[in-house]
Simulated assay, not measured.
Amino acid sequence: MRKSEAGDHVDGVLAQWHNVRPESDASPMAIFTRVFRLSKYLNRSIAAVFRTHGLHDGEFDLLATLYRAGQPQGLTPNALRHAAVLSSGAMTNRLDRLEAAGLIQRVANPADRRSLLIRLSDEGQAVLLGCLDEYLATLHRMQAPLDEEQKRALANGLRALLLTLEEQGDD
């Protein structure tokens, strides 16, 4: 019998909870404990890709956000922070590292002299695009066990959860 047919780690956790607390409904753990565990596996695999391109966790996201924005003038730090769901302190640290590496530039905002814009440098764009194919290949490999229907159902379910949490949260 394949491991997937026998159940995963979370199935065992749920059975244990049922044994020690049968009156408690631990069924949400079927989703969220799996999401937590998946996150650990995903983070390890993706961090390895980023490291090979000289990036730390989260820096790829900032570079990709700047690239996807398609605005050569750049984005304000607040717009970038909101898109990346980061605290201002974490954002400052990442921006400092990316600027020191020559991957971004902080430039004056022509629309507001009191603020700056964050712009992707030519080197930053080259690093991002050099990493992108390997990143996407890693994601494709990790979702390979799912058929198309499972991929759509999972994406739709996660979207519904995320929309609710985003509406409730303050980022």
Rank of each mutant, 00 (worst) to 15 (best):
L95G: 00
G58A: 05
N93Q: 13
L161H: 13
Q150N: 08
A100I: 05
V127A: 04
L165R: 15
S24A: 15
N93Y: 07
D171I: 11
S121D: 03
L129D: 07
N78Y: 09
P72W: 09
G7Y: 08
E149C: 11
Q73E: 14
L117H: 00
T52V: 09
R51I: 10
T164K: 15
S27M: 05
L75C: 07
F32K: 02
G169N: 12
L95D: 00
Q16Y: 11
E149H: 14
S45Q: 13
A84P: 00
E23H: 09
Q16P: 00
N78C: 08
S45W: 04
I118N: 01
V35H: 05
Y41G: 13
C131R: 03
H18P: 02
L95E: 02
K151G: 11
E134C: 07
R81S: 01
S39R: 14
G169K: 10
F50M: 11
F60E: 04
L132I: 05
A111F: 09
R119H: 01
N156H: 13
L116E: 09
A48D: 07
G169C: 08
N156K: 14
A48C: 06
I104G: 00
Q16W: 13
S88W: 06
L80R: 00
R152H: 12
A30S: 06
D133H: 10
G70S: 08
A108N: 10
G102Y: 03
L55V: 10
V13A: 06
T92L: 10
A108W: 03
S4Q: 15
